[in-house]
Design a protein around this nucleic acid. Structure first.
Length: 712
DNA sequence: GAGCACTGC
């Protein structure tokens, strides 16, 4: 390797090093026989045949766009080509992936191909798990993790080259990284950027990097025959069942993969098929299933397998041996509405790119067949070319704050591949200001700097500081951790819903879902610590608690404690159940921290209808809430969700006196009562006041934005 | 008494 000149190597030089008996990355070791086996198959990959061509382009350009379908070998080979070419620089090569599983498995594969122990010259880094060392020169990592590194070093100075893989997926992190790398390349001429993407939709990225060189590789996949319906049907579940039956009865052997939008659909279709066939192995697959049940799909089966899956099977989990794909053409999509400050979920048609990806799952090992449960006309006219990028879909307060902490003040005029909608940006600024993370001029504040570095939503920092005042900081950190787990901690499997509700009663706090969650987490932790008790798996099973979610919450909590220990005085002491005021402290803290997410029972309506103070929208209490009966007058909520009926989710009853006390609700002309038993006119008045305050905030921010635009 | 997916730090 010592003879290689940075950015001047040839394919021949590299290949002769790869062919030699001694491992060039580990001078005192010889290549294993497995290495040579792997090398033989690597050399047959489409991308390997064009190594010199790639290197020529790489040497001549700072930004390179690599496009190619699956099976081209780009994810494992291109980083190795670059590693050899950049070896002399002494810096690292980073390769990002959108998902953790892909990151670790591709790193493992590459380490094997280079014949080095994982974590030495080749390693990976994902949240909670790092296999890197001082020796590491090729580092696979999640895009989110590189983004958080970039927030401390916007020049990417540890790297000679950054490779963004799966850029066509346009995750929020990839988009932000593209923007940051675009700027970094102009400051660091020696920094190279490689963006790898599927062929589809690459023009957008190309026009974002006009000077970029392009390199296209073909893939190696089997043909998939596509069948459409002649008439469309709204009854996609029954249609899917019919098609699966048809395949099973009439078609040659080969496993079936069926895509449906929701876990409910999946369980229903599975039970219908199970009743019908004994010679078909029916397997549900969705993210909320336990790991063990997910892995059942990989087990050998005596019969034909029929896997009924959500989107997880589209990108996250790949299954070999699928010959038939049945595609409902539907998925669940979350859409954030900045005007309602609400995320709604909709069952909607997938994109053409997704349809192609789903069909491709049939041709991984041999030619396959894909049955689309929609007409060709629908596919042509109703499916958008590809899913909208993440940056256009969500709430952006955290990302705006991140950019501000990095020193980019004028985020509204920031150069994105796709700029977010101004309303989402304004709503983000408004939220940041009401949280006091930016000041009246849009400049980041001292607390804003701390909040930007949190691994949970920045809104939690205010709750931590309020918690510190009220002696329940640990509890607020626990709640922040629970709120950012991937799945809910309470399990309610449809066949055992009643039993689950009874089991959950021992954790229930009648006034608060948040405290009920805390009770469950604390019970889980003491069940782990207590010896001579049930194994923790059994304990969680009996209590209908999600063990994966709970252990994830504990890990997030521990990470938060570490990152906050210099900023806040966190004591070791955890829960104080014996304290009669415990619940009240927590509810008060929640009220004062999330006052902008509070709701009041609708006075004019019968039943459990509430109205949010901020936006004035009506909503019910989610039926899973301990407060779903709607007896309490005031509450704060964590989420406002809608998929048809709007609901407040995870709510805590609060005393309006705690709210009226705050600046936001302050009205000096109103008499204050000690018991907080406010009369209706008073409440109405304070609501109006709050709304006026919100409106004035909005006007101010719009004038900011105009200033912001003028400044550039 | 109604839901409803999937990633990441």
């Amino acid at each position: 390797m010592n003879d290689l000149q940075q950015n001047q190597t040839t394919a021949q030089q590299a290949e002769s090093l790869e062919d030699s008996r001694a491992n060039p990355l580990r001078p005192h070791e010889l290549h294993s026989s497995r290495y040579f086996q792997l090398l033989k198959s690597r050399r047959k990959l489409p991308v390997s045949l064009r190594r010199q061509e790639f290197l020529d382009i790489y040497h001549d350009s700072q930004v390179i766009l690599v496009s190619g379908e699956t099976g081209s070998g780009k994810t494992t080979q291109i980083p190795q080509f670059i590693l050899f070419d950049e070896w002399e620089s002494g810096k690292k090569v980073a390769c990002t992936q959108p998902r953790r599983l892909a990151t670790t498995s591709v790193a493992t594969r590459t380490a094997a191909e280079l014949d080095v122990p994982l974590g030495d010259q080749v390693g990976y880094s994902v949240r909670f798990e790092r296999k890197t060392s001082r020796m590491t020169r090729l580092k696979y990592m999640t895009d989110g993790l590189l983004l958080s590194e970039a927030s401390k070093d916007r020049d990417f100075s540890a790297y000679s080259c950054v490779i963004l893989d799966e850029a066509h997926e346009r995750t929020l992190s990839t988009d932000l990284l593209m923007a940051l790398l675009k700027m970094a390349t102009s400051r660091r001429p020696c920094l190279k950027v490689v963006i790898m993407s599927a062929t589809l939709n690459v023009e957008k990225i190309q026009s974002y990097f006009p000077a970029a060189a392009t390199f296209e590789i073909s893939g190696k996949v089997h043909p998939v025959q596509i069948h459409y319906l002649s008439h469309s049907t709204p009854r996609y579940c029954y249609c899917a069942v019919t098609v699966v039956k048809h395949i099973h009865k009439n078609m040659a052997e080969g496993d079936i993969l069926l895509f449906l939008p929701t876990s409910g659909d999946i369980e229903m279709v599975c039970s219908i098929l199970r009743d019908e066939y004994e010679d078909l192995t029916i397997l549900p697959l969705y993210s909320a299933l336990s790991r063990a049940r997910q892995e059942e799909i990989f087990e050998d089966s005596e019969y034909r397998k029929c896997i009924v899956a959500t989107n997880v099977a589209e990108t996250s989990i790949t299954i070999d041996g699928i010959v038939y794909v049945v595609d409902s053409g539907l998925e669940i999509r979350p859409v954030y509405n900045p005007r309602l400050r609400m995320s709604t979920v909709l069952t909607s048609p997938i994109s053409k790119a997704s349809a192609k990806q789903r069909a491709g799952r049939a041709g991984r090992t041999q030619p396959g067949i894909c049955f689309r449960l929609y007409t060709e006309q629908t596919h042509r006219a109703c499916f958008i070319p590809s899913a909208p990028p993440g940056i256009l879909e969500g709430e952006l307060a955290s990302q705006i704050l991140l950019l501000k902490v990095m020193g980019f003040d004028s985020v509204g005029t920031f150069d994105f591949v796709d700029p977010p909608h101004p309303e989402v940006y304004l709503r983000g600024l408004q939220d940041l200001r009401s949280m006091r993370y930016i000041d009246d001029k849009g400049t980041i504040t001292r607390t804003g700097r701390i909040a930007a570095r949190l691994s949970v939503h920045p809104k939690w920092l205010n709750a931590f500081m309020e918690g510190q005042k009220n002696g329940c900081l640990r509890e607020m950190i626990d709640l922040a951790a629970i709120s950012s787990t991937q799945h809910p901690i309470f399990l309610r499997p449809p066949p055992a819903r009643f039993a689950a509700d009874i089991a959950h009663q021992r954790f229930a706090c009648p006034l608060s879902d948040h405290i009920s969650q805390l009770n469950a987490l604390h019970a889980y932790e003491s069940a782990i610590k207590t010896e001579n008790r049930l194994p923790i798996n059994q304990w969680c099973f009996d209590a209908f608690l999600n063990r994966r979610a709970l252990s994830e919450a504990v890990r997030i909590r521990d990470q938060l404690v570490v990152s906050l220990q210099n900023e806040l005085a966190i004591t070791k002491e955890v829960c104080r159940f014996e304290d009669a005021e415990y619940d009240t402290h927590i509810r008060k803290t929640l009220a004062r921290s999330f006052f902008y997410q509070c709701a009041l029972k609708h006075p004019d309506m019968f039943g459990t209808i509430y109205r949010t103070v901020h936006e004035g929208h009506t909503a019910g209490i989610h039926p899973e809430s301990v407060l779903s009966e709607g007896i309490q007058e005031w509450m704060v909520y964590s989420e406002f969700v809608s998929s048809g009926t709007p609901y407040l989710q995870t709510v805590t009853a609060v005393d309006p006196a705690w709210l009226i006390d705050l600046d936001f609700f302050q009205d000096d002309s109103l008499p204050k009562t000690a018991d907080g038993n406010f009369k209706q006119p008073l409440v109405k008045k304070s609501l109006d006041k709050a709304r006026k305050k919100r409106d004035s905030l909005e006007e101010d921010l719009i004038s900011f934005e105009i200033l912001d635009l003028k400044a550039t």
